[in-house]
């Protein structure tokens, strides 16, 4: 099955391990994710002001490209757009929802985007996790060659995969999808209350301290609940919860670093796709010693 796929900027720069492991895992499950031939940054955050038009240009242009792919015959009547980054997912999905119900805003957008085909509102924005759930986790389990036996994984959702209500990929109060995936991969799930707590998000540029405090709370709780590793689905969450551990260590004596990986890296690992595809050397807090100690690599 072929799907249009939107990578977003960060998967092409600092989160290549996310993209590589995701594409390879999807392929292993018989899904081909076709990168949009031409795309722009979605803007990363949904524009909340009611009168905003300008900040809708970026996400809507991306959606037009999916319709372009169908017009050009690259895809045949498949308007589902698969995302990996939680922020891209949220921004594209929300913008899509708004313009479909606001013809006035749509008209203004078409006016500015005069060189594009008009957006017909056909696109459905999805996160890869939703696609996996749809396919069935028993199918995922069948593909596992090297189960993550004995690995205690804490799934971390952050904000934008779950909120606001109506735009999340799962029940915001009791999400299951990452838990189910980890179990399908043979790992042990460590549920912890802070799995949907904010990582500090964009404050990481000028208020590292806010992020360090959030990361400290989230990670030390995961540790206390017995986790050995954290799995997540957003390159900004990943930066805040891994790279910023250096900050946490400085500000909170006694803090013990914990490896943080993308859920797709765990999938690629369990599917036996090889360490290269997983890109484990690119994770800031090296997960390899732990994985080696469990004979998983």
């Amino acid at each position: 099955m072929r799907f249009a796929y939107y990578p977003g900027c960060t998967l092409k720069t600092t989160a290549r391990n996310y993209e590589d492991s995701a594409l390879a895992s999807a392929r292993a499950l018989g899904m081909e994710l076709l990168e949009l031939p031409r795309w722009n940054c979605c803007g990363t955050v949904h524009a909340l002001a009611k009168d905003d038009v300008m900040h809708y240009l970026a996400p809507i242009r991306v959606l037009v490209r999916v319709e372009d792919m169908n017009r050009e015959g690259i895809l045949e009547g498949n308007y589902r757009l698969v995302t990996l980054c939680a922020m891209c997912y949220n921004t594209l999905k929300r913008a899509n929802g708004v313009v479909k119900e606001d013809p006035d805003r749509m008209r203004k957008l078409h006016d500015i985007m005069e060189r594009e085909q008009p957006y017909e509102g056909k696109v459905e924005v999805l996160h890869l996790l939703e696609l996996l759930r749809e396919m069935g986790f028993e199918k995922v389990a069948e593909r596992v060659e090297r189960p993550l036996t004995g690995l205690r994984v804490a799934p971390y959702y952050g904000c934008l995969l779950l909120r606001p209500r109506g735009f999340g990929i799962d029940n915001p109060d009791s999400p299951r999808v990452m838990e189910d995936l980890i179990r399908a991969l043979g790992g042990e799930v460590v549920e912890f209350p802070y799995r949907a707590r904010c990582c500090g998000s964009y404050h990481t540029v000028e208020r590292k301290d806010i992020v360090a405090e959030a990361a400290y709370k989230i990670l030390s709780q995961a540790r206390e609940m017995g986790a050995e590793i954290v799995a997540l689905a957003c390159p900004l969450c990943s930066f805040n919860l891994s790279e910023r551990q250096d900050e946490v260590e400085r500000e909170f004596p006694g803090f013990r670093k914990i490896p943080v990986v993308y859920f797709t890296q765990l999938m690629a690992l369990a599917f036996g796709l090889g360490e290269d595809v997983c890109g484990l050397d690119q994770n800031h807090v090296d997960p390899r010693p732990l994985l080696r100690s469990k004979s998983l690599i």
Binding site: T10, L236, F239
Partner: peptide, 14 residues
């Protein structure tokens, strides 16, 4: 160090 996603979001917000 900081990933594009951080810079883009903070510039959009701030």
């Amino acid at each position: 160090e900081i990933p594009p996603i951080a810079l883009i979001s903070s510039l959009r917000k701030f």
